[in-house]
Amino acid sequence: MQEEKRIKHYSNFHKILLVGEGDFSFSTCLARAFGSATNMVATSLDNRAMVIVKHPTAKANLETLENLQCTIFHEVDAHTMSTHPLLKTMKFDRIVFNFPHAGFYYRGEHNQLQIQLHQEVLRGFFRNARNMLTINGEIHVTHKTAYPFSKWEVEKLGEEAGLYLVEKVKFTKYDYPGYENKKGDGLNSDGTFPVGECSTFKFAYLRLSALSIFA
């Protein structure tokens, strides 16, 4: 019988989808904790070559994941992933998107137009992710909670997509050895950014079929 191995909210018994990976260090952290990545699908928006150009550390991380039998897909858009040819038939217990970001189009994170772009990224992600969950699955979004990032209204966006907040827990980067949060855009795309106050928002999807049980 397989032994369960855990790191924070994640278990090797979970089928896990990781969305918008930077240098794949978060995926690699989980895989090392589990001793295997057969339960994981790790994705990036960029193609493999661009990932390695942006993040020199990604090459070694990808090789580690491959050795641990992780499924890796590149060029996966959070707004269309539920119709992706290789993902559309899969269901997941945990779908994880750490520090989603639309890219830098307007000056400053305080800019309302920039905030709206970030919100659209999350809206599209939530709409797709909810259709990819197992019955008891959860969607995890880790996000800064101090101003101006609080203006994204992550919980409200989840509710708009038919999700409900299961739990909001403080995120500590050092709980994930080897994880480096990358910018992924701008002049210093491989740079990290101060995490500051942030939390992991855990959402679930209450389907109509489940509602009928309680009617």
Rank of each mutant, 00 (worst) to 15 (best):
E153H: 09
G108P: 08
A215P: 01
E4D: 08
I7V: 12
V195C: 10
T89G: 11
G196N: 07
R207L: 08
K144D: 02
K91H: 12
G158F: 06
T200S: 12
Q114M: 12
F92Y: 13
K156T: 09
E197T: 03
Q2C: 06
E197G: 02
L157Y: 05
T28P: 04
Q2E: 12
H55E: 09
F203A: 06
S212V: 14
L187C: 09
L163T: 05
R94A: 12
D46M: 07
L18A: 03
A49M: 09
R127H: 11
S25K: 12
P177R: 09
S212P: 00
L208K: 15
V154P: 01
L206K: 14
T38R: 13
A37H: 06
E120F: 05
L113R: 14
G124Y: 08
H118N: 15
K15F: 07
Y179H: 11
A161W: 04
S36E: 14
Q116F: 08
K91N: 11
Y205R: 04
G196C: 08
F99V: 07
E3W: 00
T145W: 06
F34M: 02
F214I: 14
F34P: 06
V141T: 10
G108D: 11
N111P: 02
F24K: 12
G137N: 08
S212N: 11
T64R: 10
M50R: 14
S199I: 00
I52M: 13
N12K: 03
E66S: 15
F104W: 07
M1K: 10
H84A: 02
G22M: 13
R32Y: 04
S11Y: 05
F201W: 10
M1C: 07
M40R: 09
W152H: 10
V96E: 01
G184W: 13
G184Q: 12
H110N: 13
T38H: 06
D190N: 15
T57V: 00
V169R: 07
K88R: 11
F126K: 00
L87D: 01
I72S: 04
T172N: 15
F149V: 01
T142H: 05
H118P: 00
N181Y: 09
A204W: 00
F24Y: 15
G20I: 10
M1I: 11
W152K: 01
F73N: 03
L68N: 10
M90Y: 06
M132F: 03
S11T: 14
